[in-house]
């Protein structure tokens, strides 16, 4: 379905690399919807954006549910380690 369901976060202090090189990130949306490229009906999609620089300032991923779960675990472990760094 077009789930509409969308989480939005601020991404101050972060950068991403898009088609035109690196740029500062301002926001990210996380949602479960039809992918453009991944071979499935629905994927966990993340768009890292900088609206000031236009629609092309975007780092996009379409993750299978298994990949998203693995990423979540990896992020938890990494953030936990960073807290003790």
């Amino acid at each position: 379905m077009c789930t509409y369901s969308t989480e939005k976060i601020d991404t101050a202090g972060s950068s991403g690399k898009g088609a035109d090189g690196w740029f500062p990130l301002r926001t990210a949306t996380v949602y479960y919807d039809h992918p453009v490229h991944a071979p499935d009906d629905h994927t966990v999609n993340i768009d890292f954006l900088n609206p000031e620089r236009g629609p092309g300032a975007r780092v996009a991923v379409e993750l299978s549910l298994d990949t998203a779960k693995a990423l979540l675990k990896a992020l938890e472990i990494t953030v936990e380690r960073a807290a003790h760094h």
């Binding site: 949306t29 954006l49 609206p51 629609p55 092309g56 996009a60």
Partner: peptide
């Protein structure tokens, strides 16, 4: 309006971030 001339998937991402 959000994304004149943009790649369709970039335009959709911009529209979604703006609330649809």
């Amino acid at each position: 309006r959000e994304a004149p001339g943009a790649d369709p998937s970039d335009a959709a991402a911009t529209a979604r971030a703006n609330g649809g």
